[in-house]
Structures are given as C-alpha cells and as structure tokens.
Amino acid sequence: MSAVTEQVIRKFESRMKLRAEDRAQIAALPFKVRTIDASTYMLREGQRPVRCAFILDGLAYRQKLTPNGEREIVSILMPGEFVDLQNLFLDESDHDIQALTRLTLAEVPIPALRLFVESCPTAGQALWIDALVEASIHREWLLNIGRRNARSRLAHLLCEFSVRFRSSALVGGMAYELPMTQEQLGDALGLTPVHVNRVLKSLETDGLIARKKRQVSVVDWPGLRDAAEFNERYLHLSQIRG
C-alpha cells in the first residue's frame, strides 16, 4: 500500500470506522499525484469539474470575484482535506480554487469517486461529514465578516488557523507561519491591507501575539480568544475519531 493511499485511508478513518473491504476499495481508487506551484488555479468559475483532489501537502483557498475583479477569499483548505466535494454532483464550479502555497495533491476522477461512494456507504458518510463541517466554517466566516469589528475578525482568523493547524498536525504548539499575505488576509476579512497591518500591530502591542516575519506566536491564548469571540464549536472537532 502506498504512502498516499495510507494517508487517504487515515482521513476516512478519522471520520468513520472502516472495514477491511472499505480500505481495499480506497486503495483501488485511481489516484494521481501531482504538485502545483503557489497561485496556480486548480479550478475556475464556470468550468466543469472532472476530478476531486485530496490535499497531501500545502494550502489552497476558494475565492469569488466581482465583475470588476474585486476578490473575496471565502475559505482556506488544509492538508488532509478534500477539495470541492460539492462538485461530485454539480455540473459546473461557481467559484475559483487557487493554490495558496505549493501544493501536492492526490486527484481521483469524479466518476470513480462517485462509484466508490455508491458502493461504500461508510465512506460516503465520512465525505458528508467533511462537507457539513466545511459548511459550518462558511457560516462562521459569514458571521465574522458581517458582524465583528476588524480587530475581532482578524483575531478570529488567527485563532482558527491555530486550532486547525494543530488538529491537522501541521504544528504542535501555538506558533505557526502565517500562510497569507496582508492583502490576502484583507480579501478574506473585508479589510484593506493597511487596516490588516494596523490590527496585527495592535494585537502584538497588547501582548496577544508575537510576530517574526511571517511567523505568528500566540502569547496569550485566552486573551486572543476573548478578542476574537472565538468558540471552536463550529469546527466540530469532536467529529474527529482518535
């Protein structure tokens, strides 16, 4: 069994208990591994999806564009997550997906993944859970940008990064490399890069975080949580099987 197959099986097993035959079916999926550079488009709005990707390494993001080219980043995708599960059953993409960092992907043709889901209900339930958790994160992002002030918005995203990085084993502590530029943070939070820079400095001045270039260390987790009004319930971490 390849390392890629083992990683995908671990993903499914983090959601549901698998039988030996379930694991065999996952191992039989025609995954193709490829690496793409940062900023590469994986899918553009209006395109017909032909494959679904599992992120082995790196980060990606979804974005929507206005007719005049203004961007809103609507979600971040991390290692161990499937990209665009909704496109298993939708005929065209309604948004762009772009590599945030250099990405290594395990891609499977959509027809093969559909047949697998139909023949393996347990795996189908696991993918359902993933899709529903992502929908929950979307709702929280909508609340964040619609009802929180700039300081809370940015603090909330920093809290989310910390929790999601730790849950996906990307980092072991309370420090991580911030994966987004200040322009990208602004596009995710509805703020200008200047405003993002000002808020980052205020969080640092208040002793909630420390920064060294792109490295962010959470110095005062309770304080950052309070500033963010952060409750990790929306991440549904209890749905991850040990």
Score class of each variant (00 low, 15 high):
2 S>Y: 03
2 S>A: 15
3 A>L: 07
4 V>M: 14
4 V>N: 09
4 V>Y: 04
4 V>P: 05
5 T>M: 10
5 T>N: 12
5 T>V: 14
5 T>P: 09
5 T>I: 14
5 T>Q: 15
7 Q>A: 09
7 Q>K: 15
7 Q>G: 01
7 Q>Y: 04
8 V>K: 08
8 V>I: 15
8 V>W: 01
9 I>F: 06
10 R>N: 14
11 K>A: 15
11 K>W: 15
11 K>I: 15
12 F>H: 03
12 F>L: 01
12 F>G: 00
13 E>Y: 06
13 E>K: 07
13 E>F: 07
14 S>M: 14
14 S>P: 07
14 S>A: 14
14 S>H: 12
14 S>N: 07
15 R>K: 13
15 R>F: 15
16 M>T: 14
16 M>L: 11
16 M>P: 03
17 K>W: 01
18 L>V: 04
19 R>H: 12
19 R>Q: 13
19 R>C: 07
19 R>V: 09
20 A>R: 13
21 E>L: 10
22 D>Y: 05
22 D>P: 13
22 D>V: 10
23 R>Y: 12
23 R>L: 08
23 R>K: 14
24 A>N: 10
24 A>T: 11
24 A>D: 09
24 A>P: 04
24 A>G: 09
25 Q>P: 06
25 Q>F: 13
26 I>F: 02
26 I>G: 00
26 I>S: 01
27 A>C: 07
28 A>F: 14
28 A>M: 13
28 A>D: 13
28 A>K: 11
29 L>Q: 04
29 L>P: 02
30 P>I: 05
30 P>E: 04
30 P>V: 10
31 F>I: 08
31 F>S: 07
31 F>Y: 10
32 K>Y: 09
32 K>T: 08
32 K>G: 08
32 K>Q: 12
33 V>G: 07
33 V>W: 03
34 R>A: 11
36 I>R: 03
37 D>G: 15
37 D>M: 12
37 D>E: 11
37 D>I: 12
37 D>V: 14
39 S>E: 08
39 S>D: 05
39 S>G: 06
41 Y>M: 10
41 Y>F: 08
41 Y>L: 09
42 M>P: 05
42 M>I: 09
43 L>P: 04
43 L>V: 10
43 L>R: 02
43 L>K: 05
44 R>D: 13
44 R>K: 13
44 R>Q: 15
45 E>N: 06
45 E>P: 00
46 G>F: 00
46 G>H: 02
47 Q>C: 06
47 Q>E: 11
48 R>I: 10
49 P>S: 02
49 P>C: 05
49 P>T: 03
51 R>K: 14
51 R>W: 15
51 R>A: 12
52 C>D: 05
52 C>N: 07
52 C>H: 06
53 A>M: 10
53 A>L: 08
53 A>Q: 05
53 A>T: 06
53 A>N: 08
54 F>T: 01
54 F>D: 00
54 F>Q: 01
55 I>C: 03
